[in-house]
Simulated assay, not measured.
Amino acid sequence: MSAALVAGCSADDAGSKGKAGEIQDPYKAGKHLDVLLNGVTSAVKPSLKSRDGATETQQLNHNVSNKPDGTVIVSKTRYIRTKVARSKVDALANSMQGYCKGEGYKITSVNPKEPSFVALTSDGYSLRFSVGAPGNVYLDAASPPARDPGTSGDDTLSGMEGDTFPKDAKGQPDIMPDLEDAYWSH
């Protein structure tokens, strides 16, 4: 999911190492994703309601051997439950992008048609604001490479399963906005 934001990174990329020069703990990275997501969503006024997906890991492979290199990308998606009217999506994107710029994040990609943007922090984390169909607004956050927690493949970090979602007609998690707001929904 959001690991694609930093695909191609290696454990040697800037921002991937902690103070002691070691690859960071994946649980610490997961907690930092919460800090980033909380910061950008709390900057929006009036406030929005949201649900968090699980904090997941995606194994990274060595560039030459294409075998696991002992690191993962840690990622999380925050789904906005508040229905955002099409006429307000630009204002929401601008509010979140303004927060990111104010925090010193580098805006690396902007698509005004959707709208969407990607912001990178100085320590290698990324945030992506996107709008899906129909009106599904979400934020993805991803870490720089972190130490593999010892699980295989794409996995949810234990204790970071995210919120419980209602099921849609197909039995899948219903991530669609479901709450009206006097400002954002009209």
Rank of each mutant, 00 (worst) to 15 (best):
S2T: 13
L5T: 04
V6E: 01
S10H: 03
S10V: 10
D12S: 09
A14E: 15
A14I: 14
G15R: 07
A20P: 03
G21D: 07
G21Y: 04
E22W: 00
E22Q: 15
A29L: 04
K31F: 05
H32V: 07
L33K: 06
D34N: 11
V35P: 01
L36G: 00
L37E: 07
G39Q: 14
S42Q: 11
V44K: 00
P46H: 06
S47R: 11
L48W: 00
D52K: 02
D52Q: 06
G53R: 04
A54G: 05
A54P: 09
T55C: 08
E56H: 02
L60C: 03
N61E: 07
N63V: 15
V64Y: 11
V64T: 14
V64F: 07
P68K: 04
G70C: 09
V72D: 00
V74G: 00
S75M: 12
R78I: 05
R78Y: 06
Y79A: 03
K83F: 03
R86Q: 15
S87H: 09
D90Y: 12
N94E: 15
Y99M: 04
Y99T: 05
C100H: 06
K106W: 00
S109C: 03
E114H: 13
P115N: 10
P115G: 09
S116E: 08
S116F: 01
S116Q: 10
F117D: 02
A119C: 06
A119H: 04
L120D: 01
S122K: 15
S122T: 12
D123I: 05
S126F: 01
S126L: 06
L127A: 05
F129Q: 02
S130K: 12
S130L: 10
G132D: 12
G132A: 12
G132M: 02
N136C: 13
Y138G: 08
L139D: 01
D140W: 05
A142M: 08
A142N: 07
G153M: 06
D155F: 10
D155L: 11
T156S: 06
M160A: 04
E161V: 15
E161D: 15
G162Q: 13
F165I: 01
F165D: 04
F165A: 00
Q172T: 14
P173C: 02
P173H: 08
D174W: 06
P177K: 00
D178P: 10
D178H: 11
A182C: 01
A182Q: 11
Y183T: 13
S185D: 02
H186T: 11
